[in-house]
Design a protein around this nucleic acid. Sequence first.
DNA 1: TGCCAGGCCGGGT
DNA 2: ACCCGGCATGGC
Length: 217
Amino acid sequence: MPELRELYERLFRAFGPQGWWPARGPFEVAVGAVLTQNTNWANVKRAVRNLRRAGALSPQAIHRMAEAELARLIRPSGYYNVKARRLKHLVEFLISECGGRLRSLRRQDAQELRRRLLRVKGIGPETADSILLYALEKPVFVVDAYTLRVLKRHGLLSPQAGYQEAQELFHKALEPDARLFNEFHALFVRVGKEFCRPRRPLCGGCPLLSLGPPRST
DNA sequence: TGCCAGGCCGGGT
DNA sequence: ACCCGGCATGGC
């Protein structure tokens, strides 16, 4: 699938650099990755702002805080009770594995790290990969609902395909380049938001239309 | 007014 | 190995 490269060029020409991940540091990336699970980024920003004003944007601060208080701060991001517990699990992992310093994991093997992240309750494939790519700059492709929808709608992926298959598509066709994966995934989100919404089979003006006949998913 | 948003878990087939 | 209900806020 060398056309993935063409797909990337097309998206980049249409939208330009997306500046991901919008966060101040690796830990904030990880927190945002949990908070944005099935949630609008605008709501996540409010939650992150609340955490910052409370001085709670460090693993230690979140570790010390009562879970109910944490839930109150992240309320705007939705699912605040489950997410508070997930953040607790995340910081327990970070404190025990790297003394709370995410950066110190940067030299570790990406796939090994991925397996360890996936054992944390509340961290699934997309959240783990977001941390690996956007916080640790590992060349791991992040797949999300937009990525799947765009790929399927343009016939580059079978309708039944899941996370694993989509990720393999990129890992097999592209050089492992964290900067490329970073921009590429952000562009999927961008084009998905603008032209590939659910219940809207035809996407007028979509820069990918000439790739092939859009399917209806 | 519903529908949607940068998922994941636990229980059931 | 899938499939499903639950989890919740805010914007359009």
